[in-house]
Design a protein around this nucleic acid. Structure first.
Lengths: 331, 331
DNA sequence: GGAGGGTCGGGGAACGTTCCCCGAGTCTGA
DNA sequence: TCAGACTCGGGGAACGTTCCCCGACCCTCC
């Protein structure tokens, strides 16, 4: 009933356990006939090496942790991103022969569990996803000495390598697109400003407008659809004459879209709306959402590569990926 | 530089390693003062028990695998579900003190890795997500003898316990809703028929219509938005007079919605559209999508509970969760 | 045919924990 | 005060691998 051990295979094949171990690990210095005998015994007994024993003696686990910040308050703000990123990163890791340990960092209590988990040697490295600036977790984890990289630039620089997309460039392109259309009063709906992506997108908006002598019109959102709708209501009340809005992500743009139409304005004729990220749902809206594409799958794959580099060579350089504008109907 | 061991803690505290082990594992039979001394040494040295060594000797890992079928061909059909289910299941597992190992089962080659992975004793149990009927994986994994449950009923009955939502009841409610509106020619867009959810939803559609003497009008989709749009085109061509359509999931309903409007028909006046699942994006469409809510978060939580029961007691009973209709604008 | 070098197999320690068993110490009750 | 019972600590085996080191065998070349 018990799983066969390496010892059992050796006995069955009539060789020593060293030989079996060598065959299992594919070492070249083993006679072909011995290899064959061992393999026969392995399949016959259905032998699979015990992972824990292996991890214990080799001091490595072949496992990578994906650590996702999980807002406690039922916020589903970044669910489209969650799916894309986790899926793409998992694919890349499995292709590299690594196992994936998914860790949700929610409450403070769970944060401590994360630290313990990494310190217990369960993983060879970790990837941080969507950490906000106020989160102490990156700093804590960086201190463990384990190889860690971040998907998205962190508020505190220098803690670890990261892969980010070009938020500044993307937001600049978005605002420039509105300017090119001759829009006069261009507002923005910002994301939560403790996240670097939101900061960068707001900064680029301001800088791009400043060059044209226009003034900034800013409403604050939190990257959720609801907050986008609410911010848009406020913007329309504050400045009824605005003719364009740049939302810092698609979810808020989708919320804004509905508010604009409920206010009786046409999109894009009266008010142009442009988003950021190019999530799947941006295709479903009416009118279809013009947006800036964040290459999230590519970003996740690159983050994975960065981590594997860091583990292999002890060093890795941060990367910024280009973004491009996707013109549809809303702007 | 090396992590401190239990031995080091014992030496530091001036007690035996047995005592340290007992303190670490919270056994009651240890003197308070000893406990205090040990804890002081633990924090002083920053000791964290080595996971591999622990797993090796206890023969358990405290880890659960979430195995998600991952279609190779860039299909993102069930991404909204992926995020909901993985997130909800992870939350429930972490709340129970379990670690989560995320496994993507894509190519045939990766399937073999999954089997090896489970056999290697890396996990105490596993949860299968969104397996289609043609997939041999459930049968293979069931043979490992490990506790496994399925999120969603499997095509092959009896392999393992499952948690599903009431697809028959939900689809019946959807079609009944269309009948109540006085719709005369009600079509359906089915999902891939190797999935039990798609089968059930189609069966319920047929049964419900049969009672009214109406004939079935069926087009085949594959649960993607694109396939829904295409199926709708075909339906309109085949039967220009149809006045309602029940899509087997929201993604296809969203695709159908657009096709209907592009064909110059009004929704819901000319053609009513109803979906299934109530994904987030169903809120964004114009008109907002009427649908049947699948309690996916609840389903994931129940599946987790089922698995933990199975591990603890060696037996667990399958569960069917109720569904409810969500009436919005499209039907 | 024999010696030397190279190749491959065998034995055993080590990884860091848990848990069993035994011994010692303490406290209570007579 | 002493015996008995119970409680708590110490030593060591075991979990299943990997990997090091040594020994033996075979082959080749002189």
């Amino acid at each position: 009933m018990r799983r066969p051990t390496l010892h059992a295979v050796a006995a069955r094949a009539g060789v020593s356990k060293s030989s079996v171990s060598r065959v299992i690990n594919g070492e070249p210095s083993v006679a072909p006939e011995i290899r064959q005998i061992v393999m026969a015994a392995v399949t016959e007994l259905g032998y699979v090496p015990n992972g824990a024993a292996r991890n214990l003696v080799t001091q490595k686990t072949n496992t990578i942790a994906i650590i996702v910040s999980d807002p406690p308050a039922g916020l589903v703000s970044d669910d489209p991103m969650f799916a894309m990123v986790v899926r793409a990163a998992s694919r890349a890791l499995e292709a590299a022969g690594k196992q994936v340990s998914l860790v949700l960092a929610g409450s403070d209590e769970s944060r401590q569990r994360v630290e313990q988990y990494l310190a217990a040697g369960h993983v060879d490295g970790a990837m941080l996803v969507s950490m906000d600036g106020a989160d102490p977790l990156p700093a804590v984890l960086a201190r463990t000495g384990l190889p860690i990289v971040s998907h998205g630039r962190l508020a505190t620089p220098g803690l670890m390598p990261w892969v980010d997309n070009d938020n500044l460039g993307g937001a600049t392109k978005a605002v420039q697109h509105l300017l090119d259309q001759g829009r006069q009063r261009i507002a923005t709906i910002s994301g939560p400003l403790d996240m670097t992506a939101a900061q960068d997108r707001l900064t680029a908006y301001r800088e791009t407008l400043k060059d044209t002598g226009r003034r900034s019109i800013v409403a604050l959102g939190d990257f959720t659809r609801i907050s986008g709708a609410e911010a848009m209501r406020q913007l329309l009340a504050d400045d009824p004459q605005l003719d364009a809005v740049f939302a810092a992500n698609d979810l808020m743009a989708i919320g804004a879209l509905r508010t604009v139409r409920e206010a009786g304005r046409r999109v894009p004729d009266d008010v142009a709306v442009i988003g950021f990220d190019d999530i799947e749902a941006a295709l479903y809206t009416a009118p279809a959402l013009t947006t800036v594409r964040s290459p999230m799958g590519e970003q996740a794959a690159q983050t994975t590569r960065l981590l594997l580099d860091l583990i292999a060579h002890g060093t890795a350089d941060s990367v910024t990926l280009p973004t491009e504008i996707v013109v549809r109907e809303s702007a």
